[in-house]
Simulated scan of single mutants.
Amino acid sequence: MRWLTAVTSRLSRWAMYIACACLAGLLCIVVYGVVMRYVFNDAPPYVEQVALLLVISVAMFGAAAGVRDAGHIGLDSLVAMLSPKLRFWCDIAVQVLSVAFGVALLAGSVEMGLSTYASTIPTLGLSEAFRYLPVLLGGILFAVFSIEHLIARFAGTEVVRSWH
């Protein structure tokens, strides 16, 4: 379990670093686009596509780090009223559903990436499949982090958060 925690903790930190870098890049590209459009009356055509890729990346990597650190939305007040045994099984159900969601993201992004591989993003010249890369990586991270929570729950331990 220690090696898994070491790997997932590092993956979670890198996911958050990537999300933060993409958020900073998003801020820069949007400000650049606004200045170019309204000050110089010369809107670059690629700004919207780059911003869209960065938004997807921020969402997927940030959400994955949130899954690792149990920062996702929950009904804690309702679950706290349950018996310890029911709380255990509610947590197991949440983690199993999170694994299923990660696998669904992975499968859907692979399917969409394969179906759009031949097309290109209009102003970037990249394959449309590139749009689905953050979703694919996010799906893998969702599943891995949720599996770590399942293993820890059955072992009777807690997953130590990457961000204290």
Rank of each mutant, 00 (worst) to 15 (best):
L124N: 01
S57W: 00
G125D: 03
P45Q: 11
I73P: 02
Y117F: 13
V47H: 06
F142V: 01
V30P: 11
G139F: 11
G74T: 15
E148C: 11
F130M: 10
V47I: 13
N41V: 05
I151P: 11
A51N: 05
D76Q: 12
L97E: 05
A93H: 00
G71L: 05
G113Q: 01
R37V: 11
A80R: 15
A80T: 11
R68N: 12
L97C: 13
A24L: 15
G74F: 13
S127P: 13
V144T: 15
V103S: 05
V67M: 12
A93Y: 01
E128Q: 13
K85L: 09
T123N: 12
T120C: 03
I73Y: 12
A104K: 03
P45L: 07
M36S: 14
L26S: 08
D76V: 11
V55R: 04
A143K: 05
G71A: 06
A129L: 06
Y117H: 09
V144P: 13
Q49W: 06
G139S: 11
V103Y: 03
A43T: 12
A43G: 06
Y38R: 01
N41Q: 07
E48P: 00
A100F: 10
A107I: 05
A107P: 07
R87F: 06
T116C: 04
Q49R: 02
L23F: 14
L114M: 13
S98G: 03
E48F: 09
G108D: 00
L82D: 10
L82W: 14
E111Q: 09
V55G: 08
I29H: 10
F40D: 05
E48V: 10
F40M: 09
